[in-house]
Amino acid sequence: MPVMHQAPHPDTAEITLIPVMAALSDPIRIGLVRTLSDCRERGWGELRAPVAKSTLSHHLRVLRDAGITRTRQEGTRCYVTLRRDDLERRFPGLLNAVLAAADIDHVGRHVGLGTGNGG
C-alpha cells in the first residue's frame, strides 16, 4: 500500500498572528473559514467557490500553512477542518470577531458547500 504524504501543520504554539491575518485577508479564504466554522470535517470536493480547483487548492493551502485549518488525506481524498480551538488558545476572540465582521459585511458569502464527492 502506498504511503500518503500528510501535509505539514504548525503546532498550536507555532501559529503566529501575521500569517493568520494574511490568510484571513482574502474574501475566498474568509468564505472557506465561514463554511468550516461549524467545525465539521469537509471533503475538498464539497467546497464550492467561484475559482478554479487549482486556485481553491491554493487558498486551502494558505489556510493550512497559517494554522487556521487542518487537512487530512485519506487515499486520494482530502478533508479539511477549522482549527477553532487552537486559534482560540492563541488569539482569544479573534476568529469570532472575524466571522462576525464577515457576516455583517457579507464577505465570503459566495463560498459554500456543494454536493461534491467528498474529496
Rank of each mutant, 00 (worst) to 15 (best):
V3W: 04
V3E: 13
V3P: 02
H5D: 11
P8C: 02
E14N: 04
L17E: 14
I18H: 04
P19F: 05
P19N: 10
S25C: 06
D26A: 07
D26F: 02
I28R: 09
I28C: 14
R29V: 07
R29E: 12
R29I: 08
I30S: 12
I30R: 11
G31K: 03
G31Y: 03
R34Y: 00
L36I: 08
L36C: 03
S37A: 15
D38M: 04
D38K: 03
C39Y: 05
R40P: 01
R42T: 02
G43Y: 01
W44D: 07
G45H: 06
E46C: 06
L47Y: 05
A49M: 11
K53M: 00
K53G: 12
K53E: 08
K53W: 02
K53L: 04
S54H: 14
T55A: 14
T55W: 03
S57C: 10
S57T: 15
S57H: 15
S57L: 13
H58Y: 15
H59W: 07
H59K: 04
L63D: 11
R64Q: 12
D65K: 12
A66P: 01
A66N: 01
G67S: 05
G67L: 01
T69C: 12
R70L: 09
R70Y: 04
R72N: 01
Q73L: 07
G75C: 05
R77Y: 06
Y79L: 07
T81P: 00
R83A: 06
D85C: 02
D85T: 14
D85F: 02
R89Q: 13
R89V: 04
R89K: 12
R90V: 08
R90P: 10
F91C: 11
F91A: 12
P92E: 05
P92M: 02
P92R: 03
G93L: 08
L94N: 04
L94A: 05
L95V: 09
L95I: 07
A97S: 15
L99A: 06
L99M: 08
D103P: 00
D105T: 11
V107A: 15
G108Y: 07
R109N: 13
V111N: 13
L113Y: 09
T115R: 15
G116W: 08
G118R: 09
G118M: 04
G118K: 05
